[in-house]
Design a protein around this nucleic acid. Structure first.
Lengths: 336, 336
DNA sequence: CACAGTTACGAAACCGGTTTAGAGTTATGC
DNA sequence: GCATAACTCTAAACCGGTTTCGTAACTGTG
C-alpha cells in the first residue's frame, strides 16, 4: 500500500546493478570502496529501507520476535506485573533492531498454534505467563526457538527465565522473624503455579531454619483475588498470626482491605510483606514492604536468550534466574 | 528458518500448477469445482498456510496492524488504563485475522518513524496515548492510515477514538452535588492533556449548572503522582472542600493515601470520585466511586475504524466517542 | 610481454506467492 | 458442421530483495 523507493530504482539512480546495491547495504566484501560510499549516500538521501519481505523470502529470517502473553481470565488481568515484563521485552527487542508481534491468550482458551507462528512471521517466541503445558508442547513441536518467562510449570528442555522465588520468600519470612514475629501466616494465589509453589517452599524453609512451627491454620491459598477472604478468615480466629507473608502484592492489597474493613490497622494489628513490588505497593498507606522482582529484567533477559537460540540453533536451552531483593517500607511492625 | 510446505510442493502433489492452487486458495472464479475441492483437501491435509511474505510482496498488503503505545515517563507508567485499551486492540485485531506489531515510545523520547512503518510492515497504525503533535504529524506525512486513541491533542483531519470525558465529569460532579456537597475540589494530572482538559470543563459546567461557585483554591492540578500533595494541600486549608472530583483513579488513590496519612477517613472526612475505573478502584477500602471508561471498547473501536480506512483509502477520518458511566461505590458520603 | 591472480561489477536464478495472457477443451448457436 | 463462446488450466512475469557465478579490467611476477 505504502509506496517507497525500491532497490531497483535506487540501482538505476546510482547507475549500478541491484546486486551491487545489495552488497553495499549488507557489507559484503565484493565491492569497491568509492562505489559503496556513493551508493550509501544515495541510500541516505532517498531514505531507502530494504523491504523485509524481499529479504525474508530469500534468507528465511523475519527479524521479528513473537510474544505470546498469557493474561489471566479474571478481570484483575491487567496484572501490572506482566505489563512491566512486557515493557522489558519490548525495549530489548527494539534495542536489537527487531519487531515485536504480540498475541494475547488466556490460560484456558488457547486457539491452537499462534497465527504469527503458523505463518512463519517470527524467528522465535517468548511465552509470558501461565499457559498450559499442552499449549507449550504444541508450540515446541513446531521446532521454533522459544523462551518461557515465569511459566506455570517446569518444562523440560526449554529455555526459561524465572525469579529467585524461593530465596525471595526466604528473605521476606526471615525479615518478619527478625522483626520479632513468630506467628506468621501465608496467603497465596493459585498454588498450581510454579512461582507460588517456590515462594511457599521459601517460606517453609525460613520457618524451619529459625525453628519456628508452621501453623497450618495460618495458611490460606487460592485464587489471586481471594486475599480478602484469606485475611478475613485468619483474623477471625482466636489464635491469630501477628504477620503474614503474601506471595504477591495483589493478594497483599486485598489483605489491607480486609484489615481495614474490620476496623483494624496495618501494621499495628497485622504486619504484611508482599512479593513483586508492583507500583501499587507504594501508592497505598502504609506503603507495602515487599520483595522486589526486576520485571523489565525478566523480559530483557528472555529476549537476549531467545536471540542466542535464534542465531545458533545448536545452542542448548538456557535457564536464567533473576535475583530479587527486599524493599523495606511501612507495613511491618517491630515486636518487643 | 522454520520450514514448511510451499505452494510449489503442494501444486506438485495435487498435480496442478501453482496458479491453480493460488486460485483455489483465494476463491477465484477461474477454476473447476472438483479441482478446487481436491486442492483444498490437500491443503488441509498438509496444513499448508501461504507465506505472508510471498503474498505481501505481490499485493502490497501485510495484514499486520501496528500499535504504537505511548507510556508515560514515570514509573507509574504501567498505567492499567492503557493496558486494558491494548487488550481491546489485540482482541479486535485477532478477530479480524491480522497480526499486531507493537512498539512502545515515551512522550519525550520518540525515535523517529517507527521501524515497522519505515519497513512497510503494517497496513495501518494505532497510536495510543500522549505522543507529541510533531510525532503524530511525522507519521501522518507517511500517508498511512492511522487512528489516535485518547490523544493528548486534538489533531485535525485525523481519526480518533476518545471517551466522553466532559459528560463523565459532569455526571461525577453532579453526583457529588446531588449527595449534598457544595464545596467541591478538583484535582487532576497534567492539564495539557485533552482528556483532563475536557474533564475539567465537565466539572465546571456541572458546578455552573447547579449554581455553585467554583473555589479556585480547591483546584489543584499537575503530574499524575501529585494527587498526594494535591489533597494534602487542600486538607490543610482552613476552608476545606467536603468532596473532590479526581480526574483519574490514580490521582484518587494518592488522595486516599493523603487522607489516611492525616489520620482521616474516606468518605467521612472527604468524599472522592474518580475517573477511569481501573481495577484498583474496587481493591481499596472504601471502594472508589468513579466514572467507568470502557477501555477495551476504546481499543476495539479504534481497530475497526482503522480497518475501514485501510480497506478504503477514500474513507474520510472517523471520530468515535465512547460513552462512560458512573459506578457508585463507597467513597462518597451523603450530606444532610 | 605473457600469464596468473585479484578485484569490481553485472546477469540471472531464486525465495513463495499472485496475476495476466494465452492455450486447449468442451459447450452453444445457427 | 463450423465459428464462437465459456470453462479450465498453465506458463511466465512480477513483487523486492539476496546470492551465485561469470567476466572484464587491473595488478603483479618472471
Amino acid at each position: 500500500m505504502i509506496k517507497s523507493i525500491t532497490i531497483n530504482e535506487l540501482a538505476k539512480i546510482a547507475n549500478v546493478s541491484k546486486s551491487t546495491v545489495s552488497k553495499a547495504l549488507n557489507d559484503k566484501p565484493d565491492i569497491g570502496a568509492e562505489t559503496k560510499k556513493r551508493i550509501l549516500d544515495i541510500v541516505q538521501q532517498y531514505d531507502f529501507s530494504p523491504h523485509p519481505f524481499g529479504k525474508g523470502l530469500k534468507n528465511k529470517f523475519t527479524e521479528n520476535v513473537g510474544v505470546v502473553f498469557c493474561r489471566d481470565m479474571h478481570p484483575i488481568s491487567a496484572n501490572p506485573f506482566y505489563s512491566r515484563v512486557l515493557e522489558g521485552v519490548e525495549a530489548e527487542i527494539a534495542f536489537n533492531n527487531r519487531n515485536l508481534m504480540l498475541q494475547f491468550v488466556t490460560e484456558e482458551q488457547t486457539k491452537g498454534i499462534p497465527k504469527m507462528l503458523r505463518e512463519r512471521q517470527v524467528d522465535g517466541l517468548i511465552l509470558i505467563g501461565s499457559m498450559t503445558r499442552e499449549y507449550i508442547q504444541l508450540i515446541q513441536s513446531k521446532d521454533i526457538p522459544i523462551v518461557l518467562v515465569d511459566p506455570k510449570f517446569e518444562i523440560d528442555s526449554c529455555s526459561q527465565v524465572v525469579m529467585d522465588n524461593e530465596h525471595g520468600a526466604f528473605t521476606a519470612t526471615q525479615y518478619l522473624i527478625n522483626m520479632g514475629h513468630k506467628e506468621i501466616g501465608f496467603i497465596s494465589g493459585d498454588m498450581a503455579r510454579l512461582s507460588f509453589k517456590q515462594r511457599f517452599t521459601g517460606f517453609l524453609k525460613a520457618m524451619k531454619y529459625h525453628n519456628l512451627p508452621v501453623n497450618e491454620d495460618y495458611i490460606s491459598v487460592g485464587g489471586m483475588e481471594k486475599g480478602y477472604e484469606h485475611v478475613l478468615g485468619l483474623l477471625k480466629r482466636k489464635n491469630k498470626p501477628t504477620a503474614i507473608f503474601s506471595s504477591n502484592d495483589i493478594n497483599a492489597q486485598y489483605g489491607y482491605k480486609a484489615v481495614h474493613d474490620l476496623g483494624l490497622k496495618v501494621p499495628d494489628d497485622l504486619s504484611i510483606v508482599g512479593f513483586d513490588d508492583i507500583e501499587l505497593s507504594h501508592m497505598v498507606s502504609p506503603q507495602l514492604t515487599t520483595i522486589r522482582a526486576y520485571k523489565e529484567e525478566l523480559g530483557s533477559i528472555a529476549v537476549r536468550n531467545l536471540l542466542k537460540l535464534v542465531e545458533n540453533r545448536d545452542q542448548r536451552p538456557i535457564t536464567s534466574v533473576i535475583p530479587v531483593r527486599l524493599i523495606e517500607r511501612e507495613s511491618v511492625r517491630k515486636i518487643n
